[in-house]
Write a protein that binds this DNA or RNA. Structure first.
Lengths: 230, 230
DNA sequence: CGGAGGCGTCAAGAAGCCGATAAGGCCGCT
DNA sequence: AGCGGCCTTATCGGCTTCTTGACGCCTCCG
């Protein structure tokens, strides 16, 4: 489970050595890190440029960490992990009910913190699972919804037709060999049945090419395979 | 933040007094609780009727708690909280990376556990509930109130009919496979019973499609699954 | 010039899937 | 005990889809 690079993280803690240690460890994992010593500064940094996750200490000078959590929750649903030396149940309940996703008591191991970061980001990330929509001329292929429209009209494809088109559309412009197509759709035992491809691609072209005899998007590469032309 | 009643919770722990204490406290908060003493029993209970949250002890006779977490994650994204006497960082990292959402070391305070339950369910609930009310033509589906009206008339659905429609309506326009539907409504043990879907969707269409023979919103994708068309 | 291989087209048969219907069992309610 | 709603299970007809074989066209190459 590798760290996802590019994620912006905000660390709010008044102890310099904690800030420094977190900054070093998180940056080493490929995260982008913003450091804040006070709650006010943390809220300001988060407002200026949104962050993907916040680590907030409870004992802060000025406004308390719990207020930072409430402030962030007021406008964002980013994952928030509270770090604190306070071990009382009352503090934990208050922080979690204020909107924190997790509560870690200091001192903590860096490995545990990183694992908890992975846990909360994993759940937050699963929200919008990368759904590519391939558009080519009058064709729109929505890989997430599993729909195809040609000239603004919905096209209904059979299971095999869809899977063939899906394999091509996942790599627009790239050449896909017959063997790859047969293996992906029918399985390894059908690698030589290239006649399957001819009849099914004929049906696909009939459904979504304006002139099936002169295909513009589903292109045959003789002797090799097929390609989806944008 | 009050406890949402009706949430089904699964408790997997081999210590009888822990099971009893959790059962009493959770039921007092309005949760519905299933108790299991072994990992096998826990997985079986979850498979028979899906649960909304799982509390899993690590030290179990038979298969280990970590395997229970992996087994649940294999087919469900339900929140999972691990309870354990083990305090080592290695155990925590392993459990969290296996898919657990939180890790609580025994002994723990009931208030803290309840707060952590609220935290993970809050995030899991907020995931799809962006659209509590789905409208499609003459149909209005209120996911929060669990009510359906067709042409301004209230429609009464059976429990299974509602859950099927709910799974579809949570992702309008998106194709949901038969396997996903069967898993979500009946559990992973019923992945092959696609005849269930035919019978129940026939009843659903009879109740809320103007012309059941030509459905406009509950669409069948032959060989694949079903789709809720807006 | 002629043959071979690859490709597109068509059609027929078989297999699979869906919708409809109804009977039987389980459970809760009266 | 009786009743009714709900889920499961089985069967049947109709339709779609996949497979399979045959045929003609094209290009490439000997």
């Amino acid at each position: 489970m590798s760290a996802e690079s590019g994620l912006r993280m905000l660390v709010v803690d008044d102890e310099p050595q904690i800030r420094k240690a977190l900054g070093i460890n998180l940056r080493a994992r490929g995260y982008e890190v913003e450091l804040a010593a006070t709650g006010e500064e943390g809220l300001r940094l988060a407002a200026e440029q949104p962050v993907d996750l916040a680590l907030v200490d409870l004992g802060l000078p000025g406004i308390d960490g719990i207020e930072v959590v409430r402030g962030l929750r007021g406008w964002s649903e980013m994952p928030i992990i509270v770090l604190s030396v306070r071990e009382s149940e009352r503090d934990k309940v208050e922080a979690l009910d204020a909107g924190a996703d997790d509560y870690v008591t200091k001192p903590f191991g860096m490995g545990e913190l990183l694992a908890r970061i992975r846990a909360v980001t994993r759940r937050a990330a699963g929200r919008d699972e990368a759904l590519p929509v391939v558009m080519a001329g009058e064709l729109v292929i929505d890989l997430a919804d599993r729909t195809v429209t040609a000239a603004a009209r919905p096209v209904s494809l059979t299971p095999i037709e869809w899977r063939l088109l899906e394999v091509l559309a996942r790599h627009p412009g790239k050449l896909v060999t017959q063997r790859q197509l047969l293996q992906q759709v029918w399985g390894p035992a059908y690698e030589r049945e290239s006649n399957y491809l001819r009849v099914h691609f004929a049906n696909i072209r009939r459904k979504l090419e304006p002139v099936p005899a002169q295909p513009r998007h589903v292109i045959t590469e003789p002797g090799i395979g097929y390609r989806f032309q944008l």
